[in-house]
């Protein structure tokens, strides 16, 4: 009898372990989705700017350029450790020159590396998961046209237990969702795509729980700055009373309605947004104004 209970207990532990193992496995895209897609590098440049890739993946001292060198190197201090953006230039050895479009899609849509490891959500795949496959194919084509850099990627500085990558599978189970965050009117749909799938505004402007999961119920209502200094503002119409024209001007020149200018990370965001077609900046403004 005792032996039987022990056997059942062991079986349960093994089954739970197996289930946990399976549930935390990194996911991948369906290869067939990308089979028929041809990347358009010119449109990929717009996806690149809308997704703000250069803000993190260029070196901290890099000069602004129309052909940015994505050598990586920016650091992101957080409660869980310091993350460092890797080299995503087309260098074969140090960058992602050897990647296929499927590798990029797995990274952006599932946070899965070509080696089958989970990425930390400092990389906002929690946003990019909503990106259209065609946009990812276009972005892939554009990234290939940028100059390679032989700068090696720097390791993250993350302590136990957050250094157990497999555990990120559990984090994803709890906090990673690929559905839209807000319902959108037809007019706000393009803006929703730009904000919720590419622009990753929510990664900073939405509060997080103790484990770093986004609090979707308080979408874009502001959050403490992870750097520890200052606060990232609430940008919903309940608090931010800027007009659509004010928002578009801010995204274009960086000027606030008081003609102060964007500072900090937002200066960087404005540099990216100012390169988008004005219709896209208007779409983002319309989306923000449509929020509760």
């Amino acid at each position: 009898m005792r032996g039987k209970i022990l056997n059942i207990a062991i079986m349960l532990v093994l089954l739970t372990g197996a289930a946990a193992y399976l549930l935390t496995a990194p996911k991948r895209v369906d290869v067939a989705t990308f089979a028929g897609l041809t990347g358009d590098a010119a449109h990929g440049a717009q996806v690149f700017n809308a997704a703000g890739c250069a803000s993190c993946h260029t070196a901290p001292d890099a000069q602004r350029s129309d052909r940015p060198i994505l050598s990586g190197g920016r650091t992101f201090p957080s409660d869980f450790g310091t993350f460092r953006a890797p080299n995503i230039s087309p260098d074969l050895a140090e960058g992602i020159g050897a990647w296929s479009v499927i590798d990029l899609a797995n990274a952006m849509m599932h946070g899965t590396s070509p080696e089958g490891q989970h990425y930390y959500p400092a990389f906002p795949y929690t946003t990019y998961t909503r990106a259209a496959p065609q946009d990812i194919a276009d972005l892939f084509a554009y990234l290939k046209t940028l100059p390679p850099s032989a700068t090696p990627s720097q390791p993250h500085d993350v302590g136990f237990p957050f250094n157990i990558r497999r555990a990120l599978g559990g984090w994803k189970l709890l906090f990673f969702r690929d559905t839209w965050i807000t319902p959108a009117t037809p007019e706000a749909e393009r803006g929703r795509y730009l904000v919720e799938a590419l622009g990753h505004c929510g990664e900073c402007h939405t509060p997080r729980n103790a484990l770093g999961g986004l609090d979707y119920a308080n979408w874009l209502t502001g959050a403490p700055n992870p750097s520890g200094k200052g606060k990232i503002p609430n940008i919903t119409p309940a608090v931010l009373d800027w007009s659509e024209a004010d928002l578009v001007e801010y995204f274009t020149s960086g000027f606030t309605p008081d003609y102060d200018s964007a500072g900090g990370e937002m200066a960087e965001v404005v540099q990216n947004l100012s390169k988008l077609p004005v219709e896209d900046r208007q779409a983002i403004a319309a989306y923000l104004k449509s929020l509760p």
Partner: peptide
Amino acid sequence: MGAVGGACGACHKAYRAPE
């Protein structure tokens, strides 16, 4: 305006503390 805003922002980004 865009170019002037960019120049203002470049300095504010590097040399002004967040609010």
